[in-house]
Write a protein that binds this DNA or RNA. Sequence first.
DNA 1: TTCTAATCGAGACGGTACGTCCCGTCTTGCC
DNA 2: GGCAAGACGGGACGTACCGTCTCGATTAGAA
Lengths: 203, 203, 203, 203
Amino acid sequence: MDQAEGRPASGGALLRQRVTDAITEAAFVELAETGYARMSMEAVARRAGVGKAALYRRWPSKQAMLTELIRDRVTGTLPPTPATGALHTDLRELLASIRRQLANPLLARIGAGLLAEASHDGALAEVLHTGVAAPRRAAAQAMLRSAIDRGELPPGLDTELAADLLIAPLAFRMLVMRAGSDDEYLDALANATEAALKAAVAK
Amino acid sequence: MDQAEGRPASGGALLRQRVTDAITEAAFVELAETGYARMSMEAVARRAGVGKAALYRRWPSKQAMLTELIRDRVTGTLPPTPATGALHTDLRELLASIRRQLANPLLARIGAGLLAEASHDGALAEVLHTGVAAPRRAAAQAMLRSAIDRGELPPGLDTELAADLLIAPLAFRMLVMRAGSDDEYLDALANATEAALKAAVAK
Amino acid sequence: MDQAEGRPASGGALLRQRVTDAITEAAFVELAETGYARMSMEAVARRAGVGKAALYRRWPSKQAMLTELIRDRVTGTLPPTPATGALHTDLRELLASIRRQLANPLLARIGAGLLAEASHDGALAEVLHTGVAAPRRAAAQAMLRSAIDRGELPPGLDTELAADLLIAPLAFRMLVMRAGSDDEYLDALANATEAALKAAVAK
Amino acid sequence: MDQAEGRPASGGALLRQRVTDAITEAAFVELAETGYARMSMEAVARRAGVGKAALYRRWPSKQAMLTELIRDRVTGTLPPTPATGALHTDLRELLASIRRQLANPLLARIGAGLLAEASHDGALAEVLHTGVAAPRRAAAQAMLRSAIDRGELPPGLDTELAADLLIAPLAFRMLVMRAGSDDEYLDALANATEAALKAAVAK
DNA sequence: TTCTAATCGAGACGGTACGTCCCGTCTTGCC
DNA sequence: GGCAAGACGGGACGTACCGTCTCGATTAGAA
């Protein structure tokens, strides 16, 4: 799944970067146009001006290609963890950051398909979990720990639950309900979430 | 899309209920086994012991069939709105009810696929919104209004936001993160949500 | 294959003649329009304003229906055997008669299909042989016997061969080659055939 | 319809001869077993061990495939024109040659179907006319011209009519009547035909 | 610089599923 | 019981992709 580089072998040749790039580019365009499930390898190859074999030389299957492409695109673009020095402003900033990320048009088009595929494709599920969800949860939890250190939140805070409270309402609204959220909504949500966090102590 | 009943004037022939039932049954089994996107009409027909034409006589396409099947299965199974007389117990009961619904194994298998398909299929999106989401939100909001009437929540409550706070954390966790939730999680979540609701006043 | 009439049975009812007629009429129109092999029972029923079952109540299959229809239409329409009192004029008249029959537009459309079907359908082959070919050969042979009696042809004439010589050139030309034949052609053919017949003595 | 050879400019892929051969082989077996009209592309593909797409890559439809297959099989197998130096022996030899060709078991099975299809399919009609009928008529007419040059036939011979007289009786008997013909029949037919030819002068 | 082997574009390959049409049978309710 | 209408199981039609394979024509590392 990662043979896109390398091969110092004997008389051989390497997979050419230009080709890989053309495929990647074409694949994201196709993804955006037709969605995760409907995208066809033939269309990607055609758009990239490339033979189908060039795709299958790089990835063993359509799923694997998409999984890797998603991973590479999505990983490493983690926005900075808010650190304003106060829980309420940190919170408000985190919500704005989440909104910004979820408003990405590609994500809007293929996000749901990604989650659907992940139910059947362990590799993709893993990518999404460790590449997307985990770092964001970790950032949120770091933010919460700062607040605990500052005394803004009780030391007994259940950070697992707290991360859900922080992320879920906005993520669910945008990803699943496909509803928008204006600044007022975020303000109100920040207030409510702050209250929730203060009550989120483990038993 | 709903011609399974009704009479085209005179002398005509009706779609037979037994066949419709066999197809419906087979379709759900296939859905559970292979998921929303991978399911094949041929497999459904084969399993139902039916010709492919019997499917296409009822629905114009695979998408239409699935959309209608989902609608019929999912609509009308609305659990009762909690009405214990106290916000906290209502809340706890609603969370338990949501967990029960989301634990449905069929839903677990095809829920994500459904959401993915809905991004590209307006009819399905509509079905999911008006058939699934809207009644549940309405029930949650009715519950909240009772609490307002009893003075447990402020009259200025933003019920739109409040519904998100009620439903999203658990739904997101189970549907998207595919994580479980034990009774302790629900207890703690109920506490935190109650606090959030009390702070969820519109600006 | 012959149940189109009859059935004085117990409390039953008879197949209605009006329906049979409508089907027959429609079948010939469809035959003429789409040919023997392409004709569809659904189209016949539709055109006749009749249920498909009405067809299958009368005939066990598409082939059987066509076979019987062809038989009924084609049998009994035998033109009179020429008897002018002289071989040459008899001959010329017979050729004109053959040309007239083969110029039938329905025959032109479905004749070849009929022959093709007959290769795979013994019943149809039988119908065509005993209903169409045999009586015409018999008439030709009667004509030849008159000529022998008059001394215009030798008594040792091979009437089997002679019938081929009489019928085949024109029939092959029109039926298989789908070529026309004007009066001059028929005149010349009559001359040549007369010469051939005089030489057609069995060894 | 003929792209089985040739190169589409550069880098492309060719239809593989082995596959084409397997399909051709399978198609003729199926043709012989089930006839022209009943033959199915799925059965051909199955028997050839080939995907249906391999067929449709070569020919746009079932009809086109059969038309081309027939053309290729039937064209170029023209037997030599008799040239014994005497009309009577030429004639006898030509009849024997016709009998030999029409006794081909494949032809016996699908010949009629071919003619039937030709009524509805101009391409096939053309193939049969220019590929099968025309060269044979031309050969017969060449044979007749030699006889004229030798003085065995009158210079005013109507060669169009003469070709009919030569070919039709035997062809009609075998192809349409599906009757056999022994050597005695051919001897007698040769005698009669020779007499007919001598009388076949244009008006 | 020449050799040489893997990569390249193109697209054919065996398959599977799509949605359509027709076969011959069966079902429904009316006459 | 026949009738019109048309649903039924089945099977072939011709199309679109899947992932693999084949073909000459590059192309770049090793000699």
